[in-house]
């Protein structure tokens, strides 16, 4: 197992290298530079700024310089937020996004699995149809509709939560729910499908034939098999939750990384873009690894291949 984890981390290094290289050159080919938006700046000032940050050097030299800094763990100064290094900004903002993303992931997994189990248990009855309909709604409803709806209902009408902001502990609930709903709905459908596929398996008949009560058949025997597709999906879902938090962070005015990522791309804040991309890529690789390890823990056949 430890050998496998080390192998996966080693495999991730060339992947990261390709991503870093590709993004580094791609953003440079986008027209414009980091200081174009400073309206007051004259051409001379911009040239001076470029010279100050080394942006006038040949591109390949800049690339090598970036790699050299990166190898020491330094991402360089932000061009947009004067006086801040990218490291400092990431350290402050990524924690918020990570917290939000993880809360949403846990919420999505719990809600999805429970709803999927319930939907499968109700089968084709009216309740089953209602749950299916709800999960379809969850998939279709975009977060910029759902977020304001939740604010309207739970913050303004019932006053359970603050409408926006990131101050008290309960402020995480509404944005996490908004972010989680799509994934919860998707997981519920995955789970429902998996459970109804498993119901007709021979081992279910064996479990019933030896006298196990339905709860044990369902929550022990079927569950451990049916939850596997959900676990494999959690890796990509985590990626989606982390990188997709931009809209939700904007609606709820959360000082997270999502907004910085998008604005850094608009501002051509090269170092900031690189920082965000590297961090997101690392998160995605990490969560996929985590999902694979969890899957191996559930399925001995998968574990054997590790």
């Amino acid at each position: 197992m430890i050998k496998y984890i080390i192998k996966r981390i080693l495999e991730a290094i060339p992947v990261m290298f390709v991503i870093i290289t590709a993004v580094f050159f791609m953003v440079r080919f986008v027209p414009g530079g980091p200081f174009d938006r400073e309206r007051s700046a004259s051409a001379e000032t911009i040239a001076a700024l470029n010279a100050y940050y080394g942006l006038d050097k040949p591109l390949f030299e800049q690339y090598l310089g970036f790699l050299k800094n990166l190898s020491r763990g330094e991402l360089g100064p932000s061009y947009k937020y004067e006086g801040w290094t990218v490291n400092e900004i990431l350290a402050e903002k990524a924690a918020v996004s990570l917290e939000l993303g993880c809360a949403a992931l846990v919420a999505a997994a719990l809600m999805g699995v429970l709803l999927g189990l319930a939907a499968a248990a109700f089968g084709r009855s009216a309740w089953g149809a209602i749950l299916s309909g709800l999960s379809l709604l969850g998939i279709c409803l975009p977060s910029f509709v759902l977020g304001p709806l939740l604010i309207l209902l739970l913050a303004i009408k019932f006053r359970c939560f603050n409408a926006v902001g990131w101050d008290s502990a309960s402020d995480i609930v509404l944005p996490a729910l908004t972010l989680a709903l799509f994934y919860a709905a998707w997981i519920a459908r995955l789970m429902r499908r998996a459970v109804s596929d498993e119901l007709s398996r021979g081992y279910v008949r064996t479990a019933r034939a030896k006298g196990l009560p339905p709860g044990k058949v369902y929550f022990v025997h079927i569950f451990k098999n049916a939850v596997q597709p959900v676990v494999s999906y959690l890796g990509p879902a985590a990626a989606g939750l982390l990188t997709g938090s931009f809209v939700v962070e904007t609606i709820f005015q959360i000082p997270g990384l999502g907004r910085f990522f998008v604005s850094s791309a608009l501002d051509n804040d090269y170092t900031m873009i690189m920082g965000c991309v590297i961090l997101y890529a690392a998160f995605i690789i990490f969560f996929n690894l985590l999902a694979d390890i969890a899957l191996a823990a559930l399925n001995p056949k998968v574990a054997k291949q590790l």
């Binding site: 398996r201 021979g202 081992y203 008949r205 064996t206 479990a207 034939a209 030896k210 006298g211 025997h221 451990k224 098999n225 559930l298 399925n299 001995p300 056949k301």
Partner: peptide, 18 residues
Amino acid sequence: GREIAYIFQEPSTSLNPV
């Protein structure tokens, strides 16, 4: 299981793989 026990045709699918 206690009074009447079964064995089935397909042993590979009759046991839970996990």
